[in-house]
């Protein structure tokens, strides 16, 4: 069924249509929540809260943006709220760019067996690196580079300006690359 029609039906109280909307996006939302918090239980909790919020405010959705963009905004907010609540982790500060672009980090990665992220050891390295990144940077990297949103959509979802998104994005990329470089080359 056409998504517009499905949303309209869901907005008018059709439970079947609402269930269909949830089913269409649950994989995306669960996967994205996991990518931000790197924990399956938390991802499930965030997914539930996201869809609960969606249902509560679906009548406000005006169709000017894509439903997926709107949902990314909700899930991102829930992820940030959870991160603030937990607040237990110390994140590495990347406000200062100096350490991110040291010229010694020019190792050749061509021999690194990175293909197929199902590799457990590689997944651990990826988890460890991104967990050090503050959620505010993490979400920008994930929205723009991993989920493939445009810079403008990322700005809309994160309620930041386009220059702020670009600034956070390039620092996050440099930071993750540096962390992985150290993990790979060790």
């Amino acid at each position: 069924m056409d998504e517009k029609k499905l949303i309209a039906d869901a907005q008018s109280g059709d439970k079947k249509a609402l269930a269909e909307v949830v089913k269409n996006y649950e994989q995306t939302i669960y996967n994205f929540a996991f990518k931000i918090c790197r924990d399956r239980d938390k991802a499930e909790q965030i997914m539930q809260e996201t869809f609960y919020s969606m249902i509560k405010s679906l009548h406000q959705f005006d169709g000017k943006s894509k439903l997926s963009t709107w949902l990314y905004r909700i899930v991102t907010n829930h992820c940030l709220m959870l991160a603030r609540k937990l607040k237990s982790r110390q994140f590495v500060s990347i406000d200062d760019e100096e350490g991110l672009f040291e010229e010694k980090y020019t190792a050749d990665w061509s021999s690194i067996p990175y293909k197929g992220a199902e590799n457990k050891e590689l997944r651990e390295k990826l988890d460890n690196a991104i967990k050090k990144l503050a959620p505010e940077y993490r979400m920008i990297f994930l929205l723009r580079d991993v989920e493939g949103l445009s810079t403008e959509e990322t700005a809309q979802v994160s309620e930041l300006t386009v220059p702020a998104v670009k600034s956070r994005l390039h620092r996050a990329r440099a930071f993750l690359r540096k962390e992985l470089n150290e993990a790979f080359i060790k």
């Binding site: 649950e26 994989q27 669960y30 996967n31 996991f34 990518k35 399956r40 991802a43 499930e44 997914m47 980090y105 020019t106 190792a107 050749d108 990665w109 061509s110 690194i112 990175y114 197929g116 992220a117 590689l122 997944r123 990826l126 991104i130 990297f141 994930l142 580079d145 991993v146 990329r173 440099a174 993750l176 690359r177 992985l180 470089n181």
Partner: peptide, 24 residues
Amino acid sequence: NYFKSVEITIDCYRKYNVEIPEDA
């Protein structure tokens, strides 16, 4: 090498996905 490594970094995270379990 640096350029390539940034691309690989992004690619690694892009390919790292999890499926929603049926019970979830």
